[in-house]
Every structure is written in structure tokens, then in C-alpha cells.
Computed example of a mutant assay.
Amino acid sequence: MSLSETIAPHLPYLRRYARALNGTQTSGDAYVVAVLEALVASPDSFDRSLPGRVALYRVFSQIWNSVAVNGEDPHEQPGTGLRAVEALTPRPRQAFLLTTVEGFSTSEAALVLAVEETELTQLIDTAGREIAGQVATDVLIIEDEPIIAMDLEMLVESLGHTVVGNARTHKEAVEMAQSKRPGLILADIQLADGSSGLDAVNEILPGLSVPVVFITAYPERLLTGERPEPAFLITKPFRQDMVKAVVSQALFFRDSAGDMRRATYA
């Protein structure tokens, strides 16, 4: 397969990533054009040992990161009024967008940025803390297992958010949501008294517009019946880095407009 045939299916997605990274489609497209020109001038810069999309984004990242202004802290640029992803520092911004908007795995994103996977995870964690610095919120946990609830509380607070309550039943969840008015809900589906966290969330949402992250060992129960939106799903047993990433993702998409897709997976 020729190089042009290899990269053609991925160009629309690269344009999306470039726009998200730069803030405008015009600026993003300028970098995409630079990538194409670089590949024409030096086809060997495309690493055919990698999956095509990974290799293409890697060339883009090499070019984007070679421009000095892209490595500057956006908060040091006067009068920008940046919010959400544009206010993230450059490397965490790239790691966050690659894994959330573009759907790369951490191992694939590490290849794109030419870093170790452990460093990639640290960059995503940094992005989460920076997002929390902008949109720190109150979090309601709906979880009947005390140890899991404590783990979730520590994870959420490590990002800079505040846990305002932990509900163990449907009734407690609804009452806490009405009284605390959280900005994010983390919910199990099967609760201690046999009630449903999904039913509780469906009762809460008509009166409270809030993103929901379901953390459950029974994901199939979210895939049947009426599904609340916006919702994100993490399966148990969960990884700490996954919870942090999805919490940040849920809050980012809550506060972001435009054509970035709302991802719902874990």
C-alpha cells in the first residue's frame, strides 16, 4: 500500500486533533499541511513498523513540538482568556487529547509522543489536576462497599475535587443529590439494599444537570433500559489511572463546546 493510501483514512481525524490542540481549524490545518509536506520531502520519516494512524500522529507531534511557541505555558501568554483544553500545558494537553478525543490507548499515545508509557500516564494525571484547577467541583459517590468508596474518595480528592457525600442506597443518593447539588456523580449500579444506582441517577438527573460516571461490575445493566446522558462507564475492578482520566474527561466535556465527541467507554 502506498503512503498516501495508508494515511488518507486518518487525515480527517488528524485535522480534528490538530484543531483541538491549536484552538482553531485554520491553525490546525496549517500543521496538517506541514505534515504532508514533510512526508513528501522525507517519506522515511513515516515509521512503517507502527500502525498507520500512530505513525501519522507521531510525525505530526514531532513537527508540532518542534515549534518553540507550542512548548510555552499558555498561562504566561497575556490576554488569552483560555479555558478547558487550551489552558492545559502542552505535553499534558497532547496526552489528554490523544487518549480521550482520539481514543488512543496509553501505549499508542506513548508511541505518538515518543515517551515511556509511565511518563504518558503521568502526563494524563497532570492534565487531570490542571482541569480540576479550572473546574474543581463537588462530587457525590454512590457506592455501597466502604473500601471502594474510600478509594474513590481519595482518587477524586487527589485531583482537587471535594467529595460531599457517599450514598449506599437509592434513597440516600436522591436525598444527597437534592441537598448537596454536586457537579459530578460517581455511581455503582447494584447497591447494598438491592436498589439500583441507575434508577437513582435517572431520578436525580431531571432536576440536576450533571455528568455521571458509572463504576460497576455489571456494565451490561447500563446497556439495557433507559440510559442517562451524559454518562461514562468504568468496569470493576478499576484502575486508578482510568478513574482519574475518566473523571477529568467527564468534566472537560461538560465544560467544552464544539465538535469534540463525547466518549463513553473505559
Results as ranks from 00 to 15, higher is better:
M242V: 15
F96E: 11
G225V: 08
N166G: 02
K180Q: 13
A245P: 00
T121Q: 10
K180F: 02
S2Y: 05
W64D: 06
L208I: 07
A84P: 00
R227L: 15
T224M: 15
T235K: 07
R53K: 06
E157V: 02
V174M: 00
R261M: 11
T24P: 06
G133K: 03
G194A: 05
G197V: 02
P206Q: 05
A84D: 15
T26Q: 11
V212W: 05
A20C: 02
L36V: 04
H75F: 10
E143M: 09
Q62G: 13
A257D: 15
A250S: 13
I142F: 01
L205I: 13
A38R: 14
S196N: 04
P230T: 14
V174N: 02
L208D: 04
A263I: 13
Y31V: 01
S27I: 00
A114K: 11
A250M: 09
G28C: 04
A20L: 11
Q240W: 02
M176R: 13
L3S: 07
T264V: 14
P230F: 02
Q62H: 07
S2C: 03
L113C: 08
Q178T: 10
S158N: 01
F104G: 03
R16N: 04
G197A: 08
L184W: 03
A38I: 05
P43G: 11
L123R: 13
R83H: 13
A68M: 13
A84H: 11
R48K: 14
R15Q: 12
A68D: 15
K236S: 04
R83G: 10
L14R: 04
I7A: 04
L152P: 09
S105A: 12
A192W: 01
I124L: 12
R19W: 00
M154E: 04
H75E: 14
T235H: 03
S66Q: 10
T169I: 05
L14T: 01
D47S: 12
G183M: 03
S256G: 05
Q134G: 12
F253P: 03
L97W: 06
S107I: 12
F238S: 02
G165E: 09
G258P: 06
R254E: 13
T137Q: 09
A68T: 13
L205R: 15
R168L: 08
S66P: 06
V156P: 08
S61L: 05
D125H: 12
T118K: 11
A167R: 01
A18M: 00
L222E: 07
L56S: 06
I147S: 14
S107D: 11
R168E: 15
M154Q: 06
R181S: 10
V35F: 03
P51G: 10
V85K: 12
A173E: 01
I185L: 07
S66T: 02
P43A: 10
L198Q: 08
F46M: 13
A217K: 06
T99Q: 09
T106W: 06
E157T: 09
T26K: 09
D193L: 10
G160T: 03
R168K: 15
T80D: 06
S66R: 09
G133D: 00
M150I: 07
S158T: 05
L251Y: 10
A8P: 01
G133Y: 02
G258E: 08
V201S: 12
P92M: 09
D193P: 07
E116N: 11
D144H: 09
V112N: 01
L39P: 02
V69T: 15
Y13I: 00
T137G: 07
L120K: 01
L98P: 04
G197D: 04
T169M: 01
V59R: 03
D199Q: 09
G128F: 00
L21E: 11
